[in-house]
Amino acid sequence: MSEEPKPRRRQARGERRIAQLLQAAANVFCANGYTAASTNAIAREAHVSPGTLYQYFPNKEAIAVELGGRLMHEMREAHGQAFTPENLALPLPELLDAVVDPLIEFNCANPAFLALMHGSEVPGRIAEEHDALHASLIDRVRLLISHYLPDSPPEECVRVADMTFAIFKSGLTLILAAPEGAERAAVIVELKRALLRYLDPVIGTGTCVGPGPHSALTTPRTP
């Protein structure tokens, strides 16, 4: 008889244990930051012994690299949902919903992303991958602005895109600091309103006269 099921079961158990350890690490990084976090704290959070943790990860850096890689993969998927050719045909309020919502939802669901990526003394590999991801997001915003301003000088598109991204980052900080529920939903509405008020006169499409009936500018949603 074949002995394949046993290795497969062991592999599945190992994957569940790794997921458990990574979630515990995410909680500890959020609570204490990367620098102050320790493998012992992560093991306690995961309700396992330090020896069990070391069976899967040799040190805190290895845990951070694995967690960071997975989070950045998910963030890239959020980018893919946000910046699509179909979204460019939407009126500006609906475009903001389509672009901003996946990015907000990712960050609200994964607070460890900012805690890890922006922490001090994070492993160099994570910092490099994050810088590349950040540059990719900025490029996508610039391409979106260029789509609406095809006759504008490149430096103007860069300036508008950089300002748009700065508004988004500032609003995201407030969103993550707000309590979940109605308060967070209200802050999301305010961020989209700020982006709308800035971009509408700059893009000048003439299609944006107000939020559509299904826009989150009129119907707050909680991530």
Results as ranks from 00 to 15, higher is better:
Phe168Ser: 04
Ala216Thr: 15
Thr39Leu: 00
Leu133Trp: 08
Ala194Met: 13
Glu155Gln: 13
Met72Glu: 13
Ser152Ala: 15
Asp131Phe: 10
Lys6Ile: 09
Arg125His: 03
Gln23Ile: 00
Ala135Ser: 14
Cys157Phe: 05
Ala36Met: 07
Phe168Pro: 07
Phe165Arg: 11
Ser49Thr: 15
Glu66Leu: 07
Arg9Lys: 14
Ala216Lys: 00
His134Cys: 03
Gly210Tyr: 07
Glu155Lys: 09
Arg197Leu: 15
Arg16Leu: 15
Gly171Lys: 04
Cys157Val: 04
Glu94Asn: 14
Ala135Ile: 03
Gly212Glu: 11
Arg142Ser: 03
Thr84Asp: 02
His118Ile: 00
His214Ala: 09
Pro150Met: 05
Leu217Cys: 03
Ile18Cys: 01
Val189Pro: 00
Pro58Asn: 10
Gly181Gln: 10
Leu195Glu: 06
Ala98Gly: 09
Ile63Trp: 03
Phe165Trp: 14
Val209Thr: 10
Pro213Val: 02
Ser38Met: 05
Leu144Met: 15
Tyr34Glu: 02
Glu129Ser: 13
Ala12His: 10
Glu180Thr: 14
Ala89His: 11
Ala185Asn: 10
Gly68Ile: 10
Leu71Met: 15
Leu96Phe: 11
Gly171Phe: 01
Phe106Ile: 13
Tyr56Trp: 10
Tyr56Pro: 01
Arg8His: 08
Leu90Met: 11
Ala12Glu: 13
